[in-house]
């Protein structure tokens, strides 16, 4: 199983990133929490559909679980269909987020928790 965490930088010490589609990096771990690699999110600069493109990137890299903050409706739809399980509630850093996940403290997400930005799928705002 491969776990991806949305991050602002590469490596396990980087700050975790709330935004899914527009994060700069995905840091990848195996199910035991061993860091595998960091993938630059080439989709973040997309004019439209960054969430969808980011999902595509994760699928290409055989990711099963993603730990992130805010996921818009299109990206959620994409991940549900692509078989990626989403957990939200990132901590300050990638390492801390991983720990939180391994301790079962993150929430699985089945519906989008951010509203859509049409013309740009960035989804920044938590639904209240």
């Amino acid at each position: 199983m491969r776990i991806a965490i949305s991050a602002a930088g590469a490596g396990p010490d980087a700050p975790a990133e709330e935004r899914f589609g527009r994060c700069a990096w995905f840091v990848i771990f195996d199910e035991h929490g061993n860091v595998q690699e960091s993938i630059a999110n080439t989709a973040r600069s997309s004019a439209e559909g960054a969430g969808v493109k980011s999902t595509q990137l994760l699928l290409r890299n055989n990711i099963d679980v993603v730990l992130t903050g805010r996921v818009g409706p299109k990206a959620m739809h994409a991940m549900l269909n692509g078989g990626v399980v989403v957990y939200t509630g990132v901590a300050a850093t990638v390492n801390e987020t991983l720990e939180k996940y391994l301790n079962g403290q993150m929430k699985p997400l089945a519906v989008p928790n951010a509203r859509q930005h049409a013309g740009d799928t960035r989804s920044e705002r938590l639904a209240t």
């Binding site: 559909g49 595509q56 299109k74 739809h77 994409a78 078989g83 799928t121």
Partner: peptide, 26 residues
């Protein structure tokens, strides 16, 4: 094969292992 999703400049397509999903809004 995912070729369509790779080529789409507007990110309107997503290729998963079982199907290609279209996002007509994009």
């Amino acid at each position: 094969c995912g070729k369509c999703a790779d080529l789409c400049a507007f990110n309107a397509l997503l290729a998963t292992s079982d199907e290609v999903i279209v996002f007509p809004e994009f």
